[in-house]
């Protein structure tokens, strides 16, 4: 790098402020994860993530996790975003459930759910075969992205691949009987867990609640089919991947409503000739007013779906 270019780069730091947050992530990092457990049923706790995008301010702790107490130790469903996050969840699980974590399930590939597996022995971390395949391909990229966004929160987080050995069906662990459901649509492999004693359904990111669904690997037709399966699975309460506990049976319908609206709106936007920026600025209906991060997820979804919709809908010349 020449001296002239260096001085130009330095000069760029004095650019007029143009809007958008310019954060400085200083060297005095002292962030610690402080997860809190909420008892939702006999022997089951939920840990709420922030209903926000992955940001340095929240350490990436945006996904929900759950603990299930068993006679053979605690089951942790979704170990968080980083090694420190996974460790904090493990410590909390041991405290509230009375036994250390002896089994971990990763619901799907996304880093806010999967990368905290680094805090646990690989032999006890399980996922669907599709999720392991996804992570073999995408984990290095996720790691780069998370270290860039979260910096020191990610310290020591090595790539940890789960065992891709989860099969759909009835099973039990430490005397606790549950059903593992191998679904897809939010990603290529979405694991849901139904606890039989309490009727608690851990839905992973197939279900969002009062927080807009994210779609980076979504197949909307398959996602709808998975929602139909979940809706047809009797349950007393549902722990969504993001957002508050659902005891009213509302979250599955809300997730479907958003996906239907999203697909219809983007299809119409392409058909009307809107640009991607204009589509990202579409009015969001009032019925979604309670949904956190709605504008943010709409703009992400435009990026995910728009080029393919154009390919399908614009006439060839």
């Amino acid at each position: 790098m020449s001296l002239a270019r260096r001085s130009l780069l330095r000069a760029s730091l004095a650019l007029p402020f143009l809007g958008g947050a310019i954060t400085t992530q200083a060297e005095d990092f002292a962030g610690t994860y402080a997860p809190e457990a909420q008892a939702v049923a006999d022997g089951i706790w939920m840990v709420r993530g922030a209903d926000a995008p992955i940001e340095f301010a929240n350490g990436g702790a945006i996904a929900n996790s759950a603990f299930l107490a068993t006679n053979a130790g605690t089951v942790l469903f979704d170990p968080g975003v980083s090694r420190a996050h996974g460790q904090a969840l493990g410590a909390l699980a041991a405290k509230v459930a009375g036994m250390p974590v002896t089994r971990v399930y990763v619901s799907h590939l996304h880093p806010d759910h999967a990368m905290g597996a680094a805090a646990f022995a690989p032999a006890i971390v399980h996922a669907l075969p599709a999720t392991r395949e996804d992570l073999l391909r995408d984990a290095p990229g996720f790691s780069d992205a998370m270290y860039r966004l979260l910096a020191d929160w990610m310290k020591g987080t090595q790539l940890a691949l789960p065992q891709g050995d989860v099969a759909a069906g009835e099973t039990s662990f430490g005397g606790r009987k549950f059903r593992l459901m191998a679904l897809e649509g939010h990603s290529h492999g979405d694991l849901a867990l139904l606890d039989h004693a309490t009727g608690t359904l851990l839905a992973g990111d197939l279900v969002f609640h009062d927080r807009a669904p994210s779609t980076p690997h979504a197949d909307l037709a398959r996602w709808r089919a998975a929602l139909t399966t979940l809706a047809a699975t009797p349950h007393a309460r549902l722990v969504p991947g993001h957002g508050p506990l659902d005891t009213q049976g509302a979250a599955i319908a809300q997730t479907r409503d958003w996906l239907d609206w999203l697909e219809a709106s983007l299809t119409r936007a392409v058909d009307m000739g809107l640009t991607m920026s204009e589509a990202g600025a579409l009015a969001i209906p009032p019925r979604f007013a309670a949904m956190k991060a709605a504008r943010y997820e709409l703009q992400r979804s435009v990026a995910h779906f728009y080029p393919a919709l154009e390919e399908r809908l614009l006439p060839a010349l």
């Binding site: 640009t275 920026s277 990202g280 600025a281 943010y296």
Partner: peptide
Amino acid sequence: RFDPLVRLEIPMIAENQRVFPVT
């Protein structure tokens, strides 16, 4: 002149750094 009559619309997040919409 920095001029508010020029409207630049971009998303709040660069979801894909290879495909960033600008209007």
